[in-house]
């Protein structure tokens, strides 16, 4: 059965789009990543114009994330306090990143630098996650976050504005998650993807959050980021196709539920290994894009000002913290 997408103005197979959503949702619920990096190119493959695919994908991720957040909230896997700080840091970082991209493009050869940075980073993150989690699995150690007492000796514990995050079982200075997420925000703005790949390992390895709580909190952050981006894209560019987003959302919300349930039967290390393999898969895809001769050397620009509207929020944050 085919259905017309009102904004894209094209007819697509209903079950194909729902199926695509299902796969994205499964990954989202299981691993805490938004899935935008996969969704946009797949929608483009079925004929959706690039900008509409990107903006409507963002809208679909709102549904996926909200379904995932609800499921993880029920499982007590969402640290709202940490999520709010990560959200603020990410927004500020996005604003800085957009300016940085502008400067890099003016300098020239920015694309090569961005592509290589992305490949090296995905390779490193994926490789290290797999190695570390595999070792833990083989030695039979259960991932356990350090408690407050263990953290006391750390240099980081001497930073100002220490705060307890009982849900995650950690204690950090408010600046640590904020600055880390600010860096992730800068990276996501440069690379043009939402950044679940970077955010998830960062929460587990640097903020020492349990993997399951990291998944729920990452989805909480993605929900707000994507909701803001959807309103901005619909308001300023008129490129959000709600029918497309809802079709993807039908599949992805169900997929997210299945993913969240599946995550209960997997150990934290197993989840991280899956994430690592996914990161390596994306890295190989990027390498192939760079090396393999394209069928047609020109393509319509798929980039949308995903993070540009967030600059206003970032400017507000700078004003707030600068005072």
């Amino acid at each position: 059965m085919r259905i017309l997408l009102p904004i894209a103005g094209i007819s697509v197979h209903l079950w194909t789009v729902v199926g695509i959503g299902g796969i994205i949702g499964l990954l989202s619920g299981l691993l805490g990543i938004g899935g935008g990096f996969l969704l946009t190119p797949i929608l483009m493959m079925i004929g959706v114009p690039p900008t509409i695919a990107a903006a409507s994908g963002t809208n679909a991720i709102v549904a996926t994330s909200s379904s995932g957040v609800a499921a993880h909230f029920r499982l007590n896997n969402v640290d709202f306090k940490m999520g709010a700080i990560l959200l603020l840091g990410g927004l500020a970082g996005s604003g800085i990143g957009v300016h940085l991209v502008h400067i890099l493009r003016q300098l020239g050869s920015a694309d090569l630098a961005i592509s290589l940075t992305y490949i090296v980073m995905l390779g490193l993150v994926g490789g290290l996650i797999i190695r570390d989690s595999w070792r833990k699995l083989r030695s039979g150690l259960v991932a356990r976050p350090k408690r407050y007492e263990e953290e006391k000796s750390s240099v980081l514990s001497r930073l100002p504005l220490q705060m307890e995050f009982p849900h995650s079982g950690v204690r950090h200075s408010i600046f640590l998650p904020f600055v880390l997420c600010l860096l992730v925000g800068v990276l996501t703005a440069i690379m043009g993807v939402a950044g679940g790949f970077v955010l998830m390992p960062m929460m587990v390895y640097m903020l020492r959050m349990p993997a399951h709580v990291a998944v729920g909190t990452s989805l909480f952050q993605a929900l707000f980021t994507c909701a803001g981006a959807t309103v901005m894209q619909a308001g300023s560019n008129h490129i959000v196709d709600l029918v497309l987003a809802l079709l993807v959302a039908i599949g992805s919300t169900i997929g997210a539920q299945i993913g969240a349930r599946m995550s209960r039967y997997l150990r934290g290390e197993q989840l991280m290994i899956l994430l690592g393999f996914l990161a390596l898969g994306v890295m190989f895809k990027m390498v192939a894009d760079l090396v393999v001769t394209p069928v047609v050397p020109i393509s319509q620009i798929a980039r949308i000002d995903f993070l540009k509207p967030l600059q206003h929020v970032a400017a507000g944050l700078f004003f707030f913290f600068g005072r």
């Binding site: 009102p6 904004i7 809208n59 679909a60 709102v62 549904a63 996926t64 994330s65 909200s66 379904s67 995932g68 957040v69 609800a70 499921a71 029920r74 929900l223 909701a227 959807t230 309103v231 901005m232 894209q233 619909a234 308001g235 300023s236 008129h238 959000v240 709600l242 987003a245 809802l246 959302a249 039908i250 919300t253 169900i254 997210a256 539920q257």
Partner: peptide, 27 residues
């Protein structure tokens, strides 16, 4: 989408969030 873009964006988000919560409720 073209006549009331901001309202359309807000509705898109609202419907998506509700769809997500509804799926969670049903499952």
């Amino acid at each position: 989408a073209s006549a009331k873009p901001w309202e359309y964006g807000a509705v898109a988000v609202l419907v998506s969030v509700l769809a997500g919560f509804l799926t969670d409720l049903i499952t």
